[in-house]
């Protein structure tokens, strides 16, 4: 089971420097946050969609359609209902719908931007960018390590679930509380398995020089190039543009 959203391809976006990508990610979030009308938000969404396509990462959006489609409708409905009306004044149904649509498009833009970032950036690149942007090394390392361990625990959780099903554990019946409580026999073995591993993992890290206390180095990485600067410039331009859009 593929848990990572990363698409191992070689597109122009895959090759961009992770710092440039993180900064543009933030700029696009910022732009989508500032926009409040459906039309410009739809434009932004189309732009992100086009970028995804050019990075040959459309399959990630397809894979996430189960999420993106219901989110759209749910958001439109809920914000139309919760439209911040002025006290006393009659509710303008049309304005409420426009507002709901804008919120949904904003949310979709957030999601699509995040997905295309994850589809074209490895977790190591992400951690590297975070470190360069001031996040402490060990915090970035925990992010990578945790990311790598997720499939390990995930597999373990599925195996344990099967093992307990073989012993008659039934997840499908009973009250909510009993059903929640049935996760105990699944969680405990996975947890204990992790603990058995924790000490050895700490040892293995020490052996690999984790506490050597020397300035760290890494494999040579390409620096920021013209393409990265173009990407950044475009991101800044979009963010500035949203400030002037009425």
């Amino acid at each position: 089971m593929a848990l990572s959203l990363y698409f191992d391809r070689s597109s122009w976006l895959h090759r961009r420097h992770p710092i440039a990508k993180v900064l543009v990610l933030v700029l696009l979030f910022f732009a989508a946050f500032l926009l409040a009308d459906p039309l410009p938000l739809a434009c932004l969404f189309v732009l992100v969609f086009a970028v995804t396509a050019s990075a040959r990462a459309l399959p990630v959006l397809h894979r996430m359609r189960w999420l993106m489609i219901p989110v759209f409708f749910f958001t439109v409905i809920i914000w139309t209902l919760f439209y911040p009306a002025t006290a006393g004044a009659p509710v303008d149904r049309w304005a409420a719908l426009r507002y709901g649509l804008a919120m949904a498009l904003r949310l979709e833009t957030f999601l699509a931007t995040g997905f295309v970032f994850l589809a074209t950036t490895t977790i190591e690149e992400f951690a590297f960018a975070l470190a360069r942007l001031g996040v402490p090394y060990r915090a970035g390392f925990v992010l990578t390590l945790a990311f790598r361990l997720v499939p390990v625990f995930f597999e373990a959780a599925l195996t344990v679930r099967d093992a307990q099903r073989c012993r008659g554990l039934d997840f499908a019946s009973g009250s909510v509380a009993t059903r929640i409580a049935r996760y105990g026999p699944v969680i405990v073995p996975v947890f204990i398995g992790g603990l058995r591993r924790a000490d050895q993992m700490a040892f293995a890290l020490e052996v690999r020089g984790f506490s050597a206390g020397r300035p760290r180095t890494s494999l040579p990485r390409p620096g920021i190039d013209a393409g990265d600067l173009w990407l950044l410039a475009t991101g800044v331009a979009i963010a500035v543009a949203t400030l002037v859009v009425p």
């Binding site: 361990l149 997720v150 959780a157 996975v190 890290l205």
Partner: peptide, 15 residues
Amino acid sequence: MVVLTAMCASFYAAV
């Protein structure tokens, strides 16, 4: 503690 942090994080995410 660093390892346990990663354990807690991945365990939480995995479940």
